[in-house]
Amino acid sequence: MPTPIKHTLGMLSDNLRKRKSVLPLSRRRLLSWTKGLDLPRGGATVLYTGQMYQMVPAINAMTERLSKMEGSWMSSYFGLARSMNRLFNLAGLMARGDPREAREYSGYLRNIVALLRAAHVEFGYLYEDDLYAGALAHDEGLDDALKAHAQRVQTLLREHGVREVITIDPHTTDMLRTVYPKILEGFDLKVRTYLEVLEEARPEPVKRLSESVTIHDSCIYARREGVIEQPRDLLRRGGVTIHEVERSAKATQCCGGPIEMLFPGKSREVAAQRVDQLAKASQRVVTLCPLCLANLRRAAPAEIEIADVSAYLARAYCPATTRATGSTIETGARGELMTPVPT
């Protein structure tokens, strides 16, 4: 039995309209990763996170709570929760993420900045105007709330004079590159993922890693946005050997993430099935999407190390002084403390 669909979607829709995100985070949680990076404000080309990496610790906390409520007596109070959420940010309070996870995902963001800088790419950042792009609202068919929000994003991008955005996750990429041009008039920005930008810039590796991994392709990158070869080429040039899982590239299998809020139990089953497939190729898994990372890790035994592709690329292409370090962020190994993210 799912969490009550109507009230869960109602909260997401209310939040997007009122608080500019399906899962609103505080300014500190959204922007603390930028500390000390001196990212210029605005500009013709901007890095656009769409808040996805920042959101993952909160999504994990929310999913954990929802999985306990799924099918229980607490489900009957979702209508009341929606009413309360209209008055104050209940979803945000329910989803206080683990600070350690927040540190890890901040590290990925900082590594992406370090990678673009290593490739001599110039870009700015929109800070509080780097809004969530609305992917979950689109997937769930909340088109009325989505359109109003997308217009808000378009206005902000215009006000900042942005002509090109560099995205860092599949969901935001798909929204800005494929969905927005269909639902907004005159939305014609150039949208590329940082993986495409790096592939074109071809930075020289500073170190060859001599490590083996398998890649879990994101459904959206592989089947909607054509991002398949770029991460592979970058990893291979950095010395990484890739053992392909049987279902890879355009035939990749979903991590279960898209239904983690409504069907947490089923979502975990799909993730466990995918982890089994990946483990047959390698004990080290590289993900291209923060939601895939979170969902697969939730279902994986400790010996399977799952980490974001930026972690491997940063070790191969960035000097140690410019990137985030620590075993969790570098390889996905768990149970070890990370060293502080450099500022």
């Binding site: 799912p2 669909i5 997937d139 769930e140 459904c219 089947r223 909607r224 355009k250 035939a251 299998q253 979903c254 279960g256 898209p258 239904i259 409504l262 069907f263 089923k266 799909v270």
Partner: peptide
């Protein structure tokens, strides 16, 4: 309807 992953495996 809401349990579909929209993963496009079928569509592909």
């Amino acid at each position: 309807i809401y349990s579909c992953l929209l993963c496009k495996m079928c569509e592909e």
